[in-house]
Nucleic acid binder design. Structure first.
Lengths: 225, 225
DNA sequence: GGCATTTAATTTGGATCCAATAAAGCAATA
DNA sequence: TATTGCTTTATTGGATCCAAATTAAATGCC
């Protein structure tokens, strides 16, 4: 909530995400507090937040440890995002796309179209895609009447590998990444089309499939070379 | 984590659930601490947990307030549980029902069958149903390879109206409740059947429909009298 | 009399202190 | 030598203190 507090949570999240603390590592309050240069109090608060987020778990009867994630966990987290974003998309399609939402989505679709149009990818495109992708997904999940779904997605996204922009991993092989983004962009356009036409079931299924793009597509795209 | 800490979270959850603190109420740390007879520290820790759970939200730049939930929020929370439990059911069907899980589910199905068999409901049946229902759902979501889905469901269930056993509301009209539980039991049996047969899509859809039982069924059951 | 600026009070965040509890180490006995 | 019980140590939880920040109030100026 305060700057420092949020920073402690954020910094720990980053450190865990970077693998600075390995899974199974016991995190002592004093040790972490010293490493971060703060007192125990903000660390204790942060630990509770991170426990709720699922990054830490109780280590026996005392203290916390970095949670270990299996490949199955990664897969499930991506699918969880898929069904939740699918739910949001279906709702939006069923209740009808408001004009302003239509306009906003259209804007980011166009941005994506331009990005892909030139037929290849440069380093700086990655951030641009990340931005437009976040906007596209964010608009959809925030345009339904309730924040509950968006909250559930946000909580799931705390798992670093589950977030929507974890599509981009391999910034070395920009050629394969281009194919992936080309498909992702087309997914966006299909979803947008179904939203406009009120095709709830189709929007849901497309969104669910779209979530798998970082998970199931790389092998196929590699084969097709 | 500690007794007292957990108690503070639990007690606050209960107080909020009971409407003891109204939506929009600002919760001051000192005030709550005095009311609960503890110091500010455990209250501060609890606030962070409850914020993550979605029961509290930041009030301006200072403090927390009880979050307000609209009817749309309630509906969405139930649907979120539906899609998540549906995901779990599909996974379980797709990966095949292990013998021990089959046995356990069968046991609780039988319990439900007996409960319904006598054709009416008595007060004490409610707790029994609550128990077997919790077991049935718990087994399914914990039998897939990963805890991520179960965690997401657990977090969603922190919203008091979203939990799976919020089916029972009206313990006065036991007749209508009986009809509801009769249907719920049949849902369970259908889901069990589809799980055993590996019918993933069907299991998923049945589970999603099953989640709506507390939401969409009462009006129809009232009409059919 | 209204608005703005400064001041006071309330509240939260961070640090530290003390107590309770769990883990680890050590010793003694079987 | 192994196991059990006790003592010591480390770590966490709760309370309190102090500082910082935000909100409310009051006073002064236009």
């Amino acid at each position: 909530m305060s700057n420092n507090d949020k920073n402690v949570v954020g910094r720990l999240r980053k450190l865990i995400g970077e693998g600075r603390y390995s899974p199974g590592d016991r995190l002592g309050e004093v040790a972490v507090a010293e490493q971060l240069g703060v007192s125990r109090t903000p660390v204790r608060l942060a630990f509770r937040t991170l426990e709720q987020e699922g990054l830490l778990q109780q280590a026996g009867k005392r203290g916390f440890m970095v949670r270990e994630f299996t490949q199955a966990d990664v897969h499930c987290a991506v699918e969880v995002r898929g069904v939740l974003e699918g739910l949001a998309a279906r709702h939006l399609a069923e209740q009808g796309l408001p004009p302003d939402v239509d306009k906003e989505l259209s804007f980011w679709i166009q941005k994506g179209k331009k990005l892909i149009a030139k037929g290849y990818l440069v380093e700086s495109d990655i951030n641009q895609w990340s931005e437009l992708n976040a906007h596209f997904h964010g608009i959809i999940i925030h345009s339904i009447g309730s924040g509950v779904v968006a909250d559930a997605i946000a909580r799931n996204n705390h798992l670093p590998f589950a977030a929507a922009d974890s599509i981009i991993i391999d910034s070395d092989d920009l050629e394969r990444e281009f194919k992936k983004l080309q498909l992702a962009q087309f997914h966006h356009e299909l979803i947008f089309q179904s939203l406009k036409r009120g095709e709830g079931a189709r929007a849901e299924m497309l969104m669910r499939e779209h979530a798998l793009i970082g998970l199931r597509y790389p092998e196929l795209l590699a084969d097709s070379e």
